[in-house]
Design a binder for these strands. Structure first.
Length: 895
RNA sequence: GCCGGGAUGGUGAAAUUGGUAAACACAGCGGACUUAAAAUCCGCCGCUCUAAACAAGCUUACGGGUUCAAGUCCCGUUCCCGGCACCA
């Protein structure tokens, strides 16, 4: 009944919802997006980071998935066999928080959210192969987390040690970093403590070198992401050295790591972490020190907190010997020393380390200069007294040059000083000399150190993948046998904030030991959700295989040709996924590719205003913008807000990423309902280039919608002419040739902008193209030019606004399905011009223009420019000093 | 604090990567159509000076520099965003 929607003026108006429903019905009935392996075709695997099912889509999702869809559809038109799958990163903390709030089990909440969000995704018309959908909280999926975890244990890639966590002493529970606000628990307001508990780790540091080196095999990754990953891995070449000491009659060594062994003669103290064994020992008979160590354990484990807190320390009363001089060096406990990095102890060289400098000046420790500028200006140098002053060492004022290094031996910038036999050496030479002597005494050697730490995966939480281990009083820790996998998570628990509910589930907890058959208990810790998202890209290729984690099909599709996701994942998720892919290879599950993602597009965050209010307990409540009345200052800047519910002010926290936890996400649903999916998609692409941060504002949506209405109206008005148009032939009249030139110019721009992923200008090329077509002059061949131009416009638009393109393409008789239409080719012949207009500059300032034949050479152009009226006026008879000709662009006359 | 990125009209942005700054839009203003409104169409729209200008000057966060020529390259500063290992 509604098949022919453009039937004889019955719906001349653009009816987005009808058009979109019909197009989606057509795609569903033809299984248009089912991906089938076909080794005869070049493949294109386009993957967008799967969403956490938080309840509703937000604009960040729309942006991410529209980018992926545009690329998928564009490549399909270029003849690729495309795969675009979708799934759900379905384990995680928000489901537990929701359970605490409304009593619904995380499983039900999660599956309900997935159902709703899937509908939203489908209404946006994405070309997704839903037959490959994966959901990480299903046993079919997480079975393989468990299976690979056991392989990693067997190979020594997974192991157990203690971890430091945030502990809420009131709720008696481990807190996520996100749940710590200014060092206090988010629900209780209690001061958070650091606590040591056992946990499982993945030895990602074993792969540090490979993860670093293979960044060079990824030319399709943004440079900034590779830089961030390289800095995160943080390979540094330094020296591990020991300060000997005697304890209870025994010879011991305090090990430290330093990248600046050349400053060893400048050591005036050593500092150890509060958790360091030496600190613990010293505190035994020193209640004041014990109290200080306790205080160091207050506050969160977050690096940002640790790095910004006031540096404090206390003497231990213990001394160690300087490894070269044997001098006594005092041992301090420093709250800024991290047990997890290096040896948990650092040597203090206040003269040449800014942090040590601050510490030493605070506690009155000596500052000994051991580096000086290689060529000093005399202090009374009259030619440059300021530079001479700058060269002088001042133990009270920090100067940047104190920490300079000299990698060059021949012409060093700085050299060692006051260092006995190690004086007057470049950094490299000094390190070598010092290491040689340390090595002879057995007190040090060169060492490669990584900033990267092993990946702790244990979570004391319910809504995650169970760790497949059993604790038996007789056999110890026993692996769950493969044939008993998966260890299923009960789906009816409701967490209440007081620890892991699995501990209160005898049906989960109690189990017979697989080894001895005696009574035993299951491990109740679950895995970090980053584990789930570390291999889903491979699972999509083999989603229906119940017998293997991945199979042969992965070798066809992998690596992912284009991965798209938020820049916030630049380090952790991407590093873990790269690591896991290599681990799969090393346990014999190769996907045929050492790196999972060949090309990466990091989408900029979609931001919105954030509003909150402190609770009386010191916690924090966030408000959604639509719950507030906003107040602006005279310039229209947002300054504050009032709650609609209680009329009281709330705090404005600036802008930040749209997120569930901050409640500042904007739901695209009303946009889709009012204007349609095509408008939402078009506007999202038009708003900004994909890598750029985008502050959300929906002004402009109307414009996008207006454009699509014009596209539709143009199709309706010109339907008859286009259908009846003959093929292009013969020479066009000048005005029509100009129009055709514009059409192909815009096509050229759209093609190159698509290739470089700048979708906003693809959209504007479409707008320019329509503007040109609407102003088409009359003349012989007009219908043919319009028919060609509109077919090009529809194909340019189809990746961005596939529904309207689909509908017009079929209705106007261009073909049976625009999905199988090829991407249009630029007709270079249409772009040719006989005459060019060049900009005329005098001394770099725009002063006019000249017209030259397209074939004119530089000398001709130069002569024409100099002869021009404007140039003659400026030159006033003199000869120009210089003339610069930029072919096809401008002439600059310097006089 | 450390690592990475960003800043262009009233607003979102563009500039073929060193060559006409502000394309394409949004908002605004004026006009046409209409009894009226909406929708639609046409025109104007960086700032200063000016009655106005196809006259002149200024302008890409701020301060310097390189170049015939700088939004683009170099040095320094400010502010904003992302990440910092248990948010995902």
């Amino acid at each position: 009944m509604h098949e022919n929607i453009m039937q004889e003026k019955s719906t001349p108006q653009y009816n987005a919802s009808l058009i979109e429903k019909n197009a989606q019905k057509h795609w569903a009935s033809t299984h248009a997006f089912r991906a089938v392996e076909d080794s005869s075709k070049k493949k294109y695997y386009c993957l967008s980071m799967f969403p956490y099912p938080s309840g509703k889509l937000h604009m960040g999702h729309v942006r991410n998935y529209t980018i992926g869809d545009v690329l998928t559809r564009y490549h399909r038109m270029q003849g690729y066999n495309v795969l675009q799958p979708m799934g759900w990163d379905a384990f995680g903390l928000p489901a537990e928080n929701a359970a605490m709030q409304n009593g619904v089990p995380p499983a039900k909440w999660t599956f309900d959210n997935i159902a709703y969000m899937k509908k939203q995704l489908q209404s946006l018309g994405f070309a997704i192969d839903w037959e490959r959908e994966v959901t990480t909280c299903t046993p079919e999926y997480y079975k393989w987390n468990q299976w690979l975890f056991l392989r990693m244990l067997e190979k020594g890639i997974a192991y157990k040690k203690t971890q430091t966590v945030n502990w809420d002493p009131v709720d008696q529970t481990v807190l996520a970093n996100e749940q710590v606000i200014d060092g206090r628990g988010w629900r209780t307001g209690a001061v958070v403590e650091k606590r040591e508990i056992p946990g499982y780790y993945f030895a990602i540091t074993q792969y540090a070198d490979e993860l670093l080196a293979s960044l060079d095999t990824l030319p399709g990754w943004p440079e900034r992401v590779k830089t961030m990953q390289a800095n995160w891995i943080g390979k540094s070449f330094g020296v591990r050295l020991a300060f000997p000491y005697e304890l209870d009659g025994k010879q011991e060594k305090l090990w430290v790591f330093t990248t600046r062994a050349d400053t060893l003669m400048g050591v005036t103290y050593v500092a150890v972490a509060a958790e360091h064994p030496l600190a613990t020992h010293a505190a035994k008979n020193n209640p004041e020190l014990a109290a200080f160590i306790e205080r160091c354990k207050q506050g969160s484990v977050m690096e940002a907190d640790v790095a910004t807190m006031e540096k404090e320390g206390m003497k231990t009363g213990l001394f160690v010997q300087h490894p070269l001089t044997g001098e006594q060096v005092e041992v301090w406990v420093g709250n800024y020393v991290q047990m997890a990095y290096g040896e948990g102890a650092v040597m203090g060289v206040p003269a040449h380390d800014e942090r040590d400098f601050e510490f030493a000046n605070k506690y009155g420790l000596p500052v000994k200069q051991v580096i000086k500028k290689a060529r000093l200006l005399a202090p009374d140098d009259v030619r440059n007294p300021e530079a001479a002053e700058e060269d002088k060492f001042d133990p009270k004022v920090w100067k940047a040059w104190y920490k300079l290094e000299s990698p060059l031996v021949d012409e060093p910038l700085v050299i060692t000083t006051n260092s006995g036999k190690y004086s007057d050496l470049s950094t490299i030479a000094a390190v070598d000399a010092i290491v040689a002597d340390l090595a002879a005494k057995g007190l040090g050697e060169k060492k490669v150190q990584y900033r990267l730490r092993d990946w702790g995966i244990s979570r004391q939480r319910y809504w995650g993948c169970p760790i497949p281990l059993i604790h038996c009083p007789t056999c110890g820790t026993v692996h769950v046998p493969d044939d008993q996998l998966p260890v299923k998570l009960p789906e009816d628990c409701v967490p209440d904030g007081s620890g892991n509910p699995l501990k209160k589930r005898p049906d989960f907890l109690n189990v017979a030991c697989p080894k001895c058959g005696g009574p035993a208990e299951r491990e109740t810790d679950t895995m970090d959700t980053f584990v789930d998202s570390s291999w889903y890209y491979a699972r999509y290729c083999s989603a229906d295989n119940a017998n293997a984690m991945v199979d042969e099909r992965a070798k066809y599709w992998m690596p992912v040709d284009q991965y798209i996701g938020g820049i916030e994942h630049a380090i952790l998720h991407l590093l873990y996924a790269r690591f896991w892919n290599k681990v799969m290879r090393d346990v014999g599950l190769s996907t045929g590719s050492d790196e999972p993602f060949a090309n990466l597009l990091t989408q900029g965050m979609v931001l919105n205003h954030i509003f909150s209010r402190r609770t009386d307990k010191g916690g924090i409540n966030y408000f959604a913008p639509d719950e507030l009345d906003l107040t602006h200052d005279a310039n229209g800047k947002l300054v504050g807000a009032i709650s609609k519910a209680d009329g009281q002010p709330v705090d404005y926290n600036g802008i930040g990423t749209m997120s569930k936890s901050k409640r500042n996400g904007v739901d695209p649903q009303s946009l889709i309902e009012t204007y349609g999916a095509d408008t939402a998609r078009f506007f999202m692409m038009f708003a900004a280039p994909p890598e750029q941060t985008l502050e959300w504002a929906d002004s402009g949506v109307e414009g996008a919608h207006r454009f699509l209405k014009r596209v539709w109206a143009f199709g309706v008005e010109n339907a008859a002419a286009i259908k009846a148009a003959p093929a292009l032939s013969g020479k066009l009249p000048e005005e029509l040739a100009k129009l055709r030139r514009e059409v192909h110019l815009n096509l050229k721009q759209a093609s190159s902008d698509l290739a470089r992923h700048q979708f906003n200008t693809v959209a504007s090329a479409g707008m320019k193209l329509l503007n040109a077509l609407e102003r088409a002059p009359e003349g012989e061949g007009k219908a043919a030019v319009l028919a060609e131009g509109f077919s090009i416009l529809l194909r340019i638009l189809s990746p961005i606004t596939p529904h309207i393109a689909h509908s017009l393409w079929t209705e106007l008789g261009y073909g049976s399905d625009i999905l199988s239409a090829p991407w249009p080719q630029v007709d270079e012949g249409a772009l040719v011009q006989d005459e060019l207009e060049l900009v005329l500059q005098i001394n770099g300032k725009l002063r006019g223009s000249i017209k030259v034949a397209a074939s004119a050479d530089k000398a001709t152009i130069e002569a024409l420019a100099v002869a021009s009226e404007v140039a003659q006026k400026q030159l006033a008879g003199a000869a120009p000093k210089k003339v610069v000709v930029v072919p096809g662009r401008l002439v600059n006359i310097v006089c």
